[in-house]
Write a protein that binds this DNA or RNA. Structure first.
Lengths: 221, 221
DNA sequence: ACCTGAACACCGTTCAAGT
DNA sequence: ACCTGAACACCGTTCAAGT
């Protein structure tokens, strides 16, 4: 029965029966509910090292020691997995920007730190940031993702309202101002990630310059 | 010879010989050097209608009536085709923004028109814009793409220098100012494309607001 | 030169089946 | 409930072969 032409799969099955334990990476845990978590973390790891295009359900499954279709017990499809990864990103982004704002004195300098923290997150996690904004999450309609994104945005709105209360920022509609600031830091981050600032440009110096002009504008008064 | 089991291909070949003209979309031209052009245009059409992910070498080839590998005579790979599409985008972007700048009086209003034209191009051609900035063009090292991108950027730099000469813009380093403006319009465009402005937000009004704040800043003087 | 067609090594997803 | 394995319908790319 166990001839040379026996598929490797069959041999492994025999060995697993023998030892009483499969030879894959600790699969028993996944029967207890943390495969979902493991899938998100492995997807994120792959994204950081190889980019979004490197994420394959086959690869993720193999690394975790489960079949390539096990994922469908926890996510509707691949896009839903990426949406979960994006959600993690917005959460981290909110925590890091809020930290910069609160650590500072909630003045304009703290607001600039907040912006710098935003850009720093994007530049340090370019592939992750691209998953959050690159249009990879299709089919949409992930309410939890929308909620997490809205949470990160709200941190910005709150800071702006605070600055207005202290007479440090223009009395425009806070939402409109928040969109403006978001667009700027998003643009600064994207240009840096895409390497479009030019070789001679100092990325950090440019971020500082951009945050200064955010306050003063570019016109000559 | 021409039995029921004869492949359709053979039948078509016979018909083509008969009529003296092939039944595919004018393939004879492709022997004269415009398959490259046709591939770019068909790829762009597919991008506009179905997004980048809808572009397959098989689909493009089939529509044009050539084999799915014919492309490799004109492009190194799929990424090189997308790079050519991106190049077209930067060319159009430069022409449209320059037009807005020149049609206006080269004053600050014209500069805002230039910014609005930039955002308009992105919003009207979201999938195309994403090809230009979404990190789809990998492997990089397409000098012609870099050159076209640099050309679009130079139009912005020139406008800024002109404004400075007329005493309308701050006397900062023009390159740094150009990067700042680019980051802002890029951010505004991306947020609109990604539908991240919120349902109640008026996209055009926001663009106007953003371009005003570009001049005045957000701080309270 | 330019294009074809088969082959290769991949994909995501579905689904009946196993425990 | 949770996971598997085979099957399906796709991909991009290579390459010998045709004209």
């Amino acid at each position: 029965m166990l001839t040379l032409s026996t598929p490797a799969r069959t041999i492994r099955e025999v060995l697993e029966k023998r030892s009483g334990r499969p030879r894959r990476k600790r699969p028993s845990q996944y029967h207890h509910g943390d495969l979902r978590r493991a899938l998100i973390e492995e997807a994120l790891r792959t994204i950081q090292s190889d980019g979004v295009r490197g994420v394959t359900l086959r690869g993720v499954g193999e690394t975790l020691g489960v079949s390539r279709t096990a994922l469908y017990r926890h996510f509707a499809d691949k896009s839903a997995l990426l949406a979960a990864v994006a959600r993690e990103g917005f959460r981290t982004l909110r925590l890091q920007t809020l930290d910069a704002w609160n650590q500072g004195g909630r003045d304009w300098a703290a607001f600039e730190s907040m912006g710098a923290a935003y850009v720093r997150f994007a530049v340090r996690n370019p592939a992750h940031y691209r998953v959050m904004f690159g249009g990879f999450v299709v089919g949409s309609a992930d309410p939890e993702l929308d909620q997490e994104g809205a949470g990160a945005f709200q941190a910005l709105v709150d800071a702006i309202v605070s600055l207005q209360r202290d007479g440090l920022m223009r009395e425009d509609e806070p939402l409109q101002l928040a969109r403006f600031v978001w667009a700027l830091v998003h643009g600064v981050a994207m240009l840096q990630i895409d390497g479009l600032l030019g070789a001679e440009a100092d990325a950090e110096a440019f971020t500082r310059f951009a945050l200064e002009r955010l306050r003063t504008g570019t016109g000559r008064n």
